[in-house]
Design a protein around this nucleic acid. Structure first.
Length: 982
RNA sequence: GCCUUGGUGGUGGAACGGCAGACACAGGGGAUUCAAAAUCCCCCGCUCGUAAAGGGCAUGUGGGUUCGAAUCCCACCCAAGGCACCA
């Protein structure tokens, strides 16, 4: 057989690793401990369609790091599991009648078989699924911890990491209860606590997706108001929901991001998502109205009232919450206060009735109803035309005493800041648009540094028309006005976040049930009071049900669960009904990295000692699509558990790497008039209607339907895909066969509809797992988006076969034996140098995850040694060790052929000797005026003078220097010589 | 509009401020073979030049710093991803 045959080699070693438990990780560190290394892949959702080529990309990278690190003597934790709750299994169940539990575990089996066929060195003893009751018992337990916690923003403390922080999640029992609440009895106290928990109920409008039959978190809704998953419409509805108070942690989620070794893009994404902004809250006193609410006001009344307000405020200071006679706004530009010419409140603002005068009531009421009906999509869609209605009331600008009108408009969001703004049309584009639409005054207060028109200028400049602040630069005005506001009790510095609390409940069956009961009164109605399921009664398992199809209403499927599951009477006689919402898919993935370190612990979610030893995850690799959702949620849970003392580090993932997307094979396109769409592909070509001269005319959402314009005659063109057989390369460009029409080459995302999906099983079948692994790493940098090329797999397969032939004897028919060219002889100096260079390069490349170049080095090595006679055995052994993280099956087999009976998985990683890298002779470039003119050979030890002399004696250089004067000579020892001449 | 990351041969991609294009793929030529597969050897950025010798031009565009720039700085263009009435 001795041809390289992955089909016999690979299963053999997979069985060996299984049998010998080669990759089982002991809980205890080994004696010769070189430290621990926790390397984690983002665990997959086991979908029905099986593994995709995108999965093995990240998995191979982590596997290489793990195999390498074990050989370096590290205590490696490398687990795998399943994120298996979620919609697809449930949707499939609804369509086919198969219970999601059944489908889920079938899919897991497929995924596991596929992963095993790729030879990943997971410790399968640590496998679990988020759907295992043993696991979600602790997911529910963590939820109860969140429920049992409130955030104290003023608490200063030092954590187990030795850092001092202000702000801490603390047990709800430690929440100070105001006296007036205590006075109202225990029920009032319970309700007061409920308002402060990190897990709380909300009745605000939420994103309801009728198609999916569930509500969605803000993060799961796209900018155009559709579901992230499935792209269905989403509408706003007020529904009772469970929320998690992630906003309490906003500041820490931003600050503690800094020291992490994460891609800058992901950090930026999280920072943007949290959206911290610094500004000021300012109270605008409401102008008094004459009896009967008739305006305008008399200026005498106004002045009197304003003075009274100011003198009161300078005594009392700025109140924590605004009193009745003011409108509080948030602004990031307190420096533009003098330019505030009107105010706007959101249609949902609490003071709206207060502020609306009788004669404006009908108009405001109508507007408010219209706004309520609009979805977020409508609101943003109408961004171009601003709408709004005057309330009839005025507020007084605290800096100058001027009365300004208060409007209602839906361009102001009730959920951000105070739900009200001061409008400075001169320096805010939205306010300017609104002011133009409703003919409101525009007062410029910032002069651009270049003295251009201040109207519409939104950057920093110098204050104008701003009283005592006139002439100062923006930054200074900001601080000075804020200070003045604070002093006079009219405002204060404030920080706001774009981040909203996390909507944590879903109306689906296939998720973790909440471990909560609602108390019922004598009539069976909920009282609003909650009881938790005692910790020793966890988990709460979803009841057995056949019908979990959404009814098109927001009632969760669990609301028609069997009575015995749904109701009970507690020991004190109080009737209870279960919470029937379930947790979102994110819940399970929020903490799985913790459980992997101690997956079988029946008494604790993790043993504290194991937690200290294994966490945090040292290297976490996965797709960029989780940049905000999963990674932000995990960090939040982690911090709560940290505050409560269950975890000893503040962050879960020390280093994060996003693997790039793998696109389908390149396709070829030409451009033809629209009427040809749908015709046979060669029609437009034959008809001579194809054009190579065009510009992009318009884009559509669907990329394949972009429209182009023929630059010769203005005709509209569309893209037409051509089969590869229609293409011929000529003069370095690609043309349609027999024509002068150039084609465009482009790669697209893999998708079922395009028919360009590559199934890893097929690649393994044809070329083997080692070739697939190697190819995915050889394609390019790990984090880059790159197109698949089957020819490339062929290429690395040839390399593996070459490595095989270098070491085994192909001439024997049946038996795998060592190649007779391999002898126990010393290496030549050149061979030794190449070997040590290769060890150095491959080692450094793994450390920096530059896996594509490491493979290049191994190829170079093979290109040299494959034809060497004899081939020193020691060099071959080192090569096999270097190759083993990439192509482990082949390497194990070659290792055996070289006479080693045991696995190389823990054999020490080769080391290099710096002194062996030194060349005796160097070839260096000689430049004239920075241009390469010759290459000369010099001894490695040559001095600068010797190098210069050698360069000057080169015939090429002599000829080039003829008749010129050397102005300057630059010599870099061992590197190059440059003559600057005139 | 804002943020992030990119832009190098026909293709994927290499390159501590010092020989641009390593390593592959595709393509061309040759050897081996009855023939093929497999394998091995050679050529391969564009261009002038006879296919030589030897030039010229080349890392999105335009400037700058430097003896020397794919690499550093400034401006712009393009692509991908994300955010977007967040005051």
């Amino acid at each position: 057989m001795p041809r390289y045959n992955p089909k016999s080699v690979e299963p053999k070693w997979q069985a060996y690793w299984d049998q010998h438990q080669t990759f089982a990780t002991s809980a205890e560190p080994k004696k010769d401990n070189n430290g621990k290394l926790y390397v984690l892949d983002m665990f997959p959702y086991p979908s029905g369609s099986g593994l995709h080529v995108g999965h093995p990309e990240g998995y191979t990278a982590t596997d290489i790091v793990c195999r390498y690190s074990r050989m370096k003597g590290k205590h490696v934790l490398h687990p795998m599991g399943w994120d298996a709750f979620g919609l697809p299994a449930e949707q499939h169940a609804i369509n086919t009648g198969t219970h999601p539990r059944v489908t889920t575990y079938e899919n897991i089996a497929t995924f596991k078989r596929q992963l095993k066929s790729l030879g990943f060195s997971y410790d399968w003893n640590r496998e679990f699924s988020t759907t295992d009751p043993d696991y979600f018992r602790w997911t529910q337990w963590i939820f109860l911890k969140l429920y049992d916690t409130w955030y104290d923003p003023t608490f200063t403390w030092t954590g187990p990491d030795g850092l001092q922080r202000t702000g801490k999640g603390r047990p709800i029992a430690e929440l100070p209860i105001p006296e007036e609440v205590t006075a109202q009895g225990t029920e009032a106290v319970r309700r007061y606590q409920d308002e402060n928990r990190l897990a709380y109920q909300s009745f605000a409008p939420v994103n309801w997706c009728p198609e999916l039959g569930t509500v969605l978190a803000n993060e799961e809704v796209t900018a155009d108001g559709r579901s992230d998953r499935g792209n269905f419409p989403v509408e706003r509805r007020p529904l009772r929901q469970w929320m998690l108070r992630i906003t309490a942690y906003a500041e820490r989620l931003i600050n503690e991001l800094e020291p992490l070794d994460w891609p800058e893009s992901v950090k930026a994404l999280q920072r943007n998502w949290i959206g911290r902004s610094i500004g000021a809250e300012v109270d605008f006193p409401l102008a008094p109205r004459r009896a009967g609410g008739v305006n305008p006001l008399s200026s005498a009344d106004l002045e009197k009232d304003f003075h009274l307000f100011k003198s009161t405020r300078s005594r009392t200071g700025f109140p924590t919450s605004p009193d009745q006679n003011v409108l509080r706004v948030y602004t990031t530009r307190p420096d533009t206060l003098f330019g505030a010419t009107y105010m706007v409140i959101a249609p949902e603002h609490l003071l709206i009735d207060e502020l609306t005068t009788d004669d404006q009531k009908p108009a405001v009421e109508t507007y408010r109803q219209q706004a309520a009906l609009k979805s977020d999509l409508d609101r943003t869609d109408l961004a171009k035309t601003k709408t709004g209605v005057f309330t009839g009331s005025y507020a007084i600008n605290p800096v100058n005493g001027q009365p300004i009108p208060i409007w209602v408009a839906d361009y102001v969001l009730s959920t951000y800041g105070t739900g009200a703004i001061m409008a400075v049309p001169a320096h805010d584009s939205r306010d300017l648009e609104f002011a133009h639409a409703f003919k409101l005054p525009v007062v410029p207060v910032v002069q651009p540094p270049d003295n251009s028109d201040p109207i519409g200028f939104t950057a920093e400049g110098f204050a104008i028309n701003s009283g005592e602040f006139t002439g100062l630069p923006t930054a200074e005005v900001k601080t000075k006005i804020t200070a003045w506001l604070a002093e006079s009790g009219l405002g204060r510095q404030a920080i706001n976040y774009r981040l909203r609390d996390w909507l944590f409940s879903r109306q689906r069956y296939w998720g973790e049930p909440f471990p909560l009961w609602h108390e019922l009164d004598d009539h069976g109605n909920p009282t609003g009071l909650i009881r938790t399921v005692p910790l020793d009664q966890l988990p709460v398992v979803p009841p057995d049900m056949d019908d979990f199809k959404p009814k098109g209403t927001p009632d969760p499927p669990l609301s028609w669960a069997p009575q015995e599951w749904l109701y009970k009477t507690d020991t004190d006689g109080v009737k209870l009904v279960r919470e029937t919402n379930s947790m979102p898919q994110w819940a399970g993935s929020c903490w799985y990295y913790i459980r992997f370190a101690d997956n079988k612990n029946p008494d604790n979610f993790i043993d504290p000692e194991l937690e200290k030893y294994w966490l945090p995850v040292d290297l976490y690799i996965g797709g960029a699509e989780h940049a905000v959702l999963h990674l932000l949620y995990s960090r939040f849970w982690h911090k709560v558990l940290f505050d409560l003392g269950y975890l000893s580090r503040p962050e879960p993932f020390q280093k994060l790497v996003n693997q790039g997307m793998i696109l389908g094979e390149a396709s070829y396109f030409t451009y033809a008039p629209e009427k040809f769409s749908g015709h046979a592909l060669n029609d437009p070509v034959a008809a001579g209607l194809v054009s190579s001269e065009f510009t992009k005319f318009a884009s559509t959402d669907d990329e394949s339907n972009n429209i182009y314009e023929d630059t010769r005659n203005g005709a509209k063109l569309i893209e037409v895909e051509l089969p590869k057989e229609k293409i011929e390369p000529r003069g370095g460009k690609q043309y349609i066969i027999g024509t002068d029409f150039q084609v465009t080459i482009r790669s697209e995302k893999m998708s079922k509809s395009r028919g360009n999906v590559i199934n890893p099983d097929d690649v393994v079948e044809q070329y083997g797992a080692d070739a697939l692994r190697l190819y995915e790493m050889f394609m390019g940098p790990l984090d880059a988006t790159k197109p698949w090329q089957m020819n490339g797999v062929e290429g690395v397969y040839r390399f593996l076969a070459r490595a095989w032939r270098m070491i085994t004897d192909e001439n024997l028919a049946d038996e795998v034996t060592i190649n007779p060219a391999i002898e126990d002889v010393p290496m030549t100096e050149a061979q030794e140098r190449l070997l040590h260079k290769t060890i150095k390069a491959v080692t450094n490349d793994i450390e920096s995850l530059s896996l594509n170049t490491a493979i290049s080095r191994l190829m170079e090595f093979t290109n040299e040694f494959a034809s060497a006679q004899p081939r020193p055995k020691a060099a071959m052994e080192t090569f096999v060790l270097l190759l083993s993280p990439y192509a482990p099956h082949l390497a194990e087999d070659l290792w055996q052929t070289l006479g080693h009976p045991n696995s190389l998985a823990y054999y020490p990683w080769p080391t290099f000797d710096e002194s062996k890298l030194v060349e005796s002779e160097l070839e260096i470039p000689v430049q004239i005026n920075g241009k390469l003119r010759a290459k000369i050979k010099i001894p490695a030890t040559a001095s600068k003078e010797e190098m210069e002399a050698a360069a000057k004696s080169d015939p090429q250089i002599i000829a080039q220097l003829e008749g010129k004067t050397i102005v300057k000579t630059v010599v870099v020892a061992g590197k190059m010589v440059n003559f600057v001449v005139k």
